[in-house]
Computed example of a mutant assay.
Amino acid sequence: MAIDINCDLGEGMPNDAALMPYISSANIACGFHAGDEETMRRTIALAIEHGVAIGAHPGFPDKENFGRTEMQFPEEDIVSIVSEQIYIMLDLVFAMGGKLQHVKPHGALYNMSARDSSLANAIANAVKDIDENLILFGLSGSKSIQAAESIGLQTANEVFADRTYSSDGNLISRKEKNALISDVSKMEKQVLQMIQEQQVTSIDGTIVPLKADTICIHGDGEHAIVFAKQLHQLLHDHHIILQSFMR
């Protein structure tokens, strides 16, 4: 059994270098919701050094709210916003001798596309038009995954080590006090349930089926480094191989 661990990086947090040894895929901010060219270059270099697969992490152009506030754009503008960020990352990765493996939308863009088919289609088509070999990371079983699969893109169903779930399989909003998991043992229990049983227990006790291809740890999380180390050890203890999708 194998699993990918991904982490949102290049967002101006001090944890990037410390997290790299414990993950297999890095989602690197492309400058719209966070980061800049210097940060991108530094994070790409760290990923290459550690053999971590590189992904573009496009978000809404909203640094003030860290890309976590919902915004409305016409579909053609979404395509442009996403495409520009992927090209920025693609050019930098290529220039530094690396390879771009995947695309994972950020924050509000991610959550909106998980439930909105038109937005999901716009993002999926933007990715495919750039490189049909890129993998689209999306919330497990969501509209994002469905849209990508419908046009032949490879997908990675993403689950979360540090977030709680509602009974419909969506993430609990960060506006709610119980949205984040801060207890290590609770995190470990949820991760094992998602990997081994392909399900998660929602906050109201409902058992929700899901597919776990990749597990996310948020690089800006208060417990990011502790969680990453514990999760790495947890996989080792249960003979689960940590590996990216990179071929």
Rank of each mutant, 00 (worst) to 15 (best):
G10L: 00
G152Q: 08
H223A: 14
I217P: 06
F94Y: 14
I217N: 07
I28N: 00
A114C: 07
A18D: 14
D183H: 11
I54W: 00
A224I: 04
D237V: 11
A228E: 08
S150K: 12
N6I: 07
K63H: 13
V191K: 03
H239I: 12
G51C: 05
L46C: 01
S202D: 13
S167P: 14
I88Y: 09
S167E: 15
I207T: 13
N111G: 04
V208K: 06
S25Q: 01
E222F: 12
G67H: 01
V103Y: 02
H33C: 11
K128R: 15
G10A: 01
I5L: 07
E222Q: 15
I240W: 02
Q196E: 14
H232P: 11
A126R: 01
L234K: 05
D36S: 00
D213K: 01
I86E: 03
I23K: 01
F94D: 15
M13P: 12
L92H: 02
N111Q: 02
A212D: 02
D168S: 09
A228S: 10
I28Y: 00
H218I: 09
Q146D: 08
A108T: 08
F94K: 15
P209G: 09
E188W: 07
G51A: 05
L153H: 03
I3H: 04
A95N: 14
F227K: 02
A161D: 08
H238N: 15
Q154M: 09
V82I: 09
K104D: 05
Q154W: 00
N125W: 02
N157Q: 06
D131I: 08
N6L: 08
K63V: 11
A147R: 00
D162G: 03
Q230E: 15
Q101I: 07
F32Y: 00
V82P: 08
N170K: 09
P105S: 06
R115V: 15
N27V: 03
Q198S: 08
G55L: 06
G138W: 00
L90M: 09
G107E: 10
A95Y: 07
I195A: 01
T164R: 12
C7N: 06
K175V: 04
I28G: 02
D162K: 04
D131C: 11
G55M: 04
A161V: 05
I225P: 14
G10F: 00
L119W: 00
G152E: 10
G59R: 01
P14W: 00
I130F: 05
D91Y: 07
I225L: 15
I203Q: 10
R247E: 15
I3T: 10
I225K: 08
F227M: 10
F94M: 14
Q230P: 11
L231F: 11
P14E: 03
F245A: 04
V127H: 11
Q146H: 05
G169W: 06
S182N: 13
L153R: 04
K211Y: 03
F66L: 07
G205P: 06
E38F: 12
D129V: 13
G59I: 07
D204L: 03
Q101V: 04
Q72R: 02
M246D: 13
F66M: 04
Q190P: 14
I88Q: 09
K211H: 10
S167G: 12
N125R: 13
K63I: 11
E49I: 06
M112C: 02
I123W: 02
L134K: 00
I181Y: 01
